[in-house]
Design a protein around this nucleic acid. Structure first.
Length: 592
RNA sequence: GGGGUGGUAGCUCAGUUGGUUAGAGCGUCUGCCUGUCACGCAGAAGGUCGCGAGUUCGAGUCUCGUCCAUCCCGCCA
């Protein structure tokens, strides 16, 4: 019985045709003398009617059983048309039934609404059932279409896809890696590639000029809603390109993807925001600009304040910052406590605030403020009835971080109260630029690369490398959408001397270590490395946002849990002694 | 490594101040039903209250520990 149509296809125009359909039993409605079965395949649902000798057999079918049917397309009685689905005007009068498989009762409802409520661990244990849900089927297709759109785009721009090894060598400077023991070389290891970074730069030396790859990458760091141990990035590198060229290239890609997948016209170019401004105004380097609640710097206002906490912070070089969570004065004690806990976890001593209720400023600290200070606050923060203003006084970067998080939490509280809407389909792309090339790591007592050590300094800042490394801006850029970092990249260093200097003199990596880790790269650069730059762009995160979710697990067919386990296949597992012996591995299990 | 939330029937949840036989909706099973599309009606089965210990005359409820899931911090060059 060969399938002639899919289950979202047949309409009035097919009346009287004899057809065959195949799929899963979505529901059985048994009326005794007549049985209706909704037959579902990946395209949709068609109603099948059994009122003949097949009735008894159809009555045995259970939900999710797999069947094939043959029958005639007939019109439903007038009053029985279902306008809700494309096939709602017709039904199939079944004359043949093949039962391919009777299904056990599924452990959870396979509807969109029902399945969304189910504990995710159960969905992951039965991922093959979860993926049957229309919503998950749609997510898989969005991912496919987005990936195809990306490939078509880079192809049209003259880029070629080159595969690079997943088994690379260990580069412990970066993220923690997955190590793979070598059987042939006892005691030696490969590492799963965290990113094709070094290979793609080598490809530039190799004269490829325009490379891209939809590449699987692996990082052994703790998982999050937007981080999996293996993930997919759109990896791009081009020669003879500058930052403007990269911006235009990726704006073009995103424009095409949004058009192909959502039929939405993205406006370009995207706004650009220097890193320092992003921190100062939003308290993060990946601001969600769909709402305001911007941070204001009040260090000047309070530098001579009678309120010692603020004045002394400014005196010691720190900042006093604040933002107005407009309309949130009715925050509950519990919510306020939660905000304070978050602030404290980021190093705040507390979370000072001013509430305006009944025309009064209610606050534990307002008694310390002069009239001039109050007036400055009112005008700079536009304080009105019903508002609550949160303060942070700390070193600049910490004050930014504290209020940056508080701002996001306050926004959620305002959304919960219906006082603010944050639309999942509003697309606030932006480029965050002018990152510092390096930051000082107190633990390691040395500078570390903010992005990675291959990032080129901004030309005019290069002279500061020896005198004031942290003032040097990198030719680095992040693509941010709605508070999520979608990708990052840079123009790279292509002169071996500068690269060696960054490694050894600025980052203080010993020469022999540089030689063993990066020697091949420095050597390659001596044979005519073109100027080049690129970007690594998270496919999972992009697809998640296209699907209206922020969890990449929703757009990865078989994701791991936060404890890095596959609940369906049940990995990881112990291995046999023989396997370990072959790999020259001994395990030491810590006592429980 | 740290903090928050959750774990009660197959699923989603309720369970009061610690007190009789732990409930509801959906699903499942049985029966009836020829126009449903979340079919309907009648009935039934289904519980290691995550696990372990403690307090108590008595624990789903209180305490401690632990496991799992999830969100966040650290971490993610």
């Amino acid at each position: 019985m060969k399938r002639t149509h899919h289950c979202a296809q047949l309409t009035k125009s097919d009346l009287n045709a004899t057809v065959s359909l195949a799929g899963w039993v979505d529901s059985v409605r048994d009326h005794g003398g007549i049985i209706f079965i909704d037959l579902r395949d990946r395209e949709g649902v068609t109603q099948v009617k059994f009122d003949t000798n097949l009735r008894a057999e159809a009555a045995q079918l259970k939900s999710e059983s797999v069947i094939g049917i043959t029958g005639q397309v007939v019109l439903r009685p007038d009053a029985m048309m279902n306008k809700g689905i494309p096939t709602g005007e017709i039904e199939i009068d079944a004359t043949g039934l093949v039962v391919h498989n009777i299904s056990d009762t599924p452990p959870f409802p396979l509807t969109d609404a029902g399945g969304d409520k189910v504990n995710e661990d159960l969905r992951l244990t039965y991922r093959y059932l979860d993926l049957r849900r229309p919503k998950m089927q749609k997510n898989l297709r969005v991912r496919h279409r987005a990936a195809k759109s990306v490939r078509d785009y880079f192809d049209s721009q003259g880029f070629i896809e080159v595969e690079t090894p997943a088994l690379f060598k260990s580069t412990p400077e970066g993220a923690r890696e997955y190590l793979v023991p070598s059987r042939i070389h006892p005691g030696e290891f490969y590492a799963l590639s965290q990113s094709p970074q070094q290979f793609k730069q080598i490809l530039m030396v190799a004269g490829v000029e325009k490379y891209f790859q939809i590449a699987r990458c692996f990082r052994d760091e703790d998982l999050r809603a937007d981080r999996q141990m293996e993930f997919t990035q759109i990896d791009v590198e081009a020669s003879f390109i500058d930052r403007e060229g990269i911006y235009a290239l990726f704006e073009g890609m995103l424009k095409k993807v949004w058009k192909d997948v959502l039929n939405h016209d993205l406006p370009t170019p995207f706004p650009r925001l220097p890193y320092h401004d992003a921190m100062n105004r939003y308290g993060v380097d990946k601001p969600d600009t769909r709402f305001g609640l911007e941070l204001v710097d009040l260090s000047d206002t309070f530098k001579a304040s009678a309120f010692k906490v603020f004045a002394s912070t400014v005196a010691s070089g720190g900042s006093v910052k604040a933002f107005n969570a407009k309309g949130l004065a009715n925050i509950t004690q519990g919510e306020l406590g939660a905000l304070e806990d978050i602030a404290k976890s980021l190093g705040a001593k507390g979370l000072a605030f001013i509430k305006v209720e009944g025309g009064e400023w209610r606050s534990p600290i307002v008694k310390f403020f002069s009239d001039a200070e109050k007036a400055a606050l009112t005008s700079r923060l536009n304080i009105e009835e019903g508002d609550i203003v949160f303060f942070a006084a700390a070193p600049w970067d910490r004050a930014c971080a504290i209020l940056g998080r508080t701002r996001l939490e306050a926004a959620q509280l305002l959304v919960k109260r219906g006082k603010m809407t944050i639309r999942a389909d509003q697309w606030n792309f932006l480029w965050v630029v002018d990152f510092p090339l390096m930051s000082y790591d107190d633990e390691r007592k040395s500078y570390v690369a903010t992005h990675h050590p291959f990032t080129a300094p901004v030309g005019e800042d290069e002279r500061l490398l020896d005198t004031d490394p942290k003032a040097v801006r990198g030719q680095h850029y992040d693509a941010v959408l709605n508070g999520m970092e979608l990708g990052g990249g840079s123009i790279r260093i292509h002169q071996p001397a500068l690269q060696k200097k960054i490694f050894e003199e600025v980052l203080k990596i010993p020469g022999d270590v540089v030689e063993s880790r990066f020697g091949y790269m420095l050597k390659a650069f001596t044979y005519g490395a073109p100027p080049h730059g690129g970007m690594a762009f998270g496919l999972d995160r992009m697809v998640a946002l296209l699907c209206g979710t922020t969890s990449i697990r929703d757009v990865i067919a078989f994701p791991k849990t936060q404890k890095a386990q596959d609940l369906m296949a049940q990995s990881p597992t112990p291995v046999t002694a023989k396997q370990l012996k072959e790999l020259h591995i001994q395990t030491v299990i810590p006592p429980q």
